[in-house]
Design a protein around this nucleic acid. Structure first.
Length: 271
DNA sequence: ACGGATGTTCGCGC
DNA sequence: CGCGCGAACATCCG
């Protein structure tokens, strides 16, 4: 479930679940989620701690508690946080848990184990190299078309590959890049440096519109992640290769770039 | 059964 | 150093 809009939704949800709450017990199973160490520290340090903040930077969640305790959470490809009432059966693939003073359990669930939880002092989270290395966050910082145009002009990569570089823009993944390029009518393989400022402006609008669109789809019941909605692909072109373009009805094509596939309209998005 | 999936990271080669 | 490519990670789904 992880790209900027989904992670933003996860942050808001986690914030609501844990606001004002104290963690009475924390558990962490021995899995790759804690690669890099900190599994024992997670369980030990969080017991008795009260939430201070849940922040997001790009696709990264930063969770802080009192006494300067905290952790960073990356959801990888299939990570998510879920809440279960007292006595409820744990969800499948629960990898770590926070039991609150209301008796609820907040599970970190991750079938493929691509996600990661890393304990750090709460005050250090924003200063971590992996957080500082992130480019501007479209929601928190906004995107400056002139600055993005300048950055895109410095690479020989395809615009879609450049867009997914977290140092250029934080939080854009395969879906968001695919959707934003469609909205901006830009071919995914266009060299990033070939884009005019006018085209970059359209791209920024495309990114913002795609984020807003996905966030809207996420708003609903507390555990309703878009991905879990069977048969409800809320995207314009992502995963729709072979279907008609929503704009001109031309059959959408598929293209692989940087190991990821894009759907695009060969008529609306010319090379 | 085979292939691909919203991410990150590493090694290899040019 | 920049960049493309493939692989690896582990599970599910069609």
């Amino acid at each position: 479930m992880p790209e900027l809009p989904e992670v933003e939704h996860a942050a808001r949800t986690l914030r609501r679940w844990l606001r004002g709450r104290k963690v009475v017990r924390a558990e962490a199973d021995a899995t790759r989620v804690f690669r890099g160490g900190g599994r024992a520290a997670f369980a030990r340090a969080l017991a008795g701690r009260r939430l201070r903040f849940v922040e997001r930077r790009g696709k990264v969640l930063l969770v802080g508690f009192d006494r300067d305790v905290g952790f960073l959470s990356r959801l990888g490809m299939t990570g998510k946080w879920l809440r279960r009432k007292q006595g409820a059966a744990p969800p499948k693939h629960s990898r770590a848990r926070l039991v609150t003073d209301r008796g609820e359990t907040i599970h970190y669930v991750d079938p493929r184990l691509f996600g990661r939880i890393t304990p750090h002092p709460a005050s250090a989270l924003l200063e971590l190299p992996e957080v500082r290395a992130l480019g501007p966050d479209p929601l928190l910082d906004g995107l400056d078309p002139a600055a993005l145009h300048e950055r895109l002009g410095r690479t020989r990569r395809a615009v879609k590959v450049a867009l997914m570089d977290q140092a250029l823009v934080a939080g854009v993944g395969n879906i968001l890049a695919t959707e934003a390029l469609f909205r901006a009518r830009l071919h995914p393989a266009r060299p990033a440096r070939s884009l005019s400022l006018r085209e970059v402006k359209a791209l920024v609008r495309g990114i913002e519109a795609s984020i807003a669109h996905t966030l809207e789809a996420e708003q609903g019941e507390e555990i309703t992640y878009v991905e879990e909605d069977p048969d409800a692909n809320p995207f314009l072109v992502y995963d729709r290769a072979g279907s008609p373009c929503p704009r001109c009805r031309t059959t959408l094509a598929r293209l692989a770039l940087g190991g990821r596939t894009s759907a695009y309209c060969p008529r609306c998005q010319r090379p």
